[in-house]
Design a protein around this nucleic acid. Structure first.
Lengths: 207, 207
DNA sequence: TATTTTAGTGAACAAGTGTTTACTAAATAA
DNA sequence: TTATTTAGTAAACACTTGTTCACTAAAATA
């Protein structure tokens, strides 16, 4: 096995270890030595891969970004198969929260955490997500020949509502998740119909 | 000065110290010694007031609850003076976020954090907030002789949207906060009109 | 082949951590 | 007044932490 591959491999081990440890205590209460211990590697080895814990954190945030993009892609694919937009999106989202819980915790925990570089990186990641949703909403509006006014506002509201439900889902036992999803779907529909109605009123005012 | 008063006073000092330190690094990365140092008190003194850091944390969470209740009361009072519900509420909320930033950080940071007892306590606090908002919405609907269907769903959505904006406001410079608030107001109106329209449709179906 | 690079190691460091101990001085109770 | 309770202290404890250092063994290069 080549040296680059080996290095990449232990790097991955470290990332996985950190991700695993986040589950039981956030990123803030997470020590370099814990990570190396969990990874089965000497403390000094850490410095061959990251200069800092903050550096590791930024690598984790890259993973979050990747996750969100995969999430979007998967949702779009399934929507084009099934048709029902909201319900399918919510389904995909909840599946992701269940299986990538730790990344999710990172995303929402460090958004308020101490480290400024984390906060801005994560906020940027979230903004990108909102933008993509905005574009989707725009396309949908064109397709259905309606208007949502400024779709970015609806998108922002939807993202807030969805992620809030995501947090709640993190420690909701599986069987009560269905309930949670039904509420979430209603909330999203509220926002969308509200946006449509308000857009129509504004249109009427202008004409 | 009586002994009880003295004790209560240093207890307060410890709480204030913790609150002050949270600003620069969340609750998780916060050591007992740091708190006592900031409070100007010997480390051992801590144990005369709290058994644990977790114990201190729970005391802080009580403060959060107090803050939220004050928030509600103040909003109601101002609403009865001015009339405009949404705009006034958002104003009051944002003022609170600006002046009680650290409590806010605690509320939203530890909702996902490591400590299970924190999570549940904070979720309970948030739920109480949502409930009160639900009742307010109900009263408003009666007064305006309209219906929002199940107002608890709209309330949940509004809370999500408002707190999400609160997080963003935490490190938004004052002059851009106005923009943020305008968006927030639009989002809330969306949810409310959406809820009203959907309730009307459902009503029509039943009749 | 011999030489250089380098991912990973183990030992050591100074500094910070939570917690317990016996102690003081002042407020309370007798 | 004398005796007791107690909020706060200083010192010590056994650990954990981040970081550096010289070192090894194996892969890459010459």
């Amino acid at each position: 096995m080549t040296r680059r591959e080996r290095k990449a491999q232990t790097r991955r081990t470290l990332i996985e270890a950190a991700l695993c440890l986040i589950e039981g205590g956030g990123f803030a209460g997470l020590s370099l030595r814990e990570v190396t211990r969990q990874a089965g590697v000497a403390p000094a080895t850490f410095y061959r891969h990251f200069s800092d814990m903050e550096d590791l954190g930024l690598a984790l945030i890259d993973e979050v970004g990747l996750m969100l993009r995969q999430l979007m892609r998967k949702a779009r694919k399934r929507i084009s198969e099934t048709g029902s937009v909201t319900r399918t999106s919510v389904n995909v989202f909840m599946e992701f929260v269940q299986s990538n819980g730790n990344l999710f915790r990172l995303l929402l925990g460090e958004r308020i955490g101490n480290t400024p570089s984390f906060r801005s990186a994560l906020q940027a990641e979230l903004n990108r997500f909102t933008e993509e949703l905005t574009e989707d909403l725009e396309r949908q509006a064109v397709r259905l020949k309606t208007s949502l006014g400024d779709p970015s506002i609806a998108a922002e509201a939807i993202v807030a509502v969805v992620f809030s439900a995501g947090v709640e889902a993190l420690d909701t036992p599986g069987h009560r998740c269905q309930q949670l999803m039904e509420r979430l779907i209603l909330e999203i529909r509220m926002i969308l119909t509200g946006a449509a109605v308000m857009a129509k009123k504004n249109q009427a005012k202008i004409e």
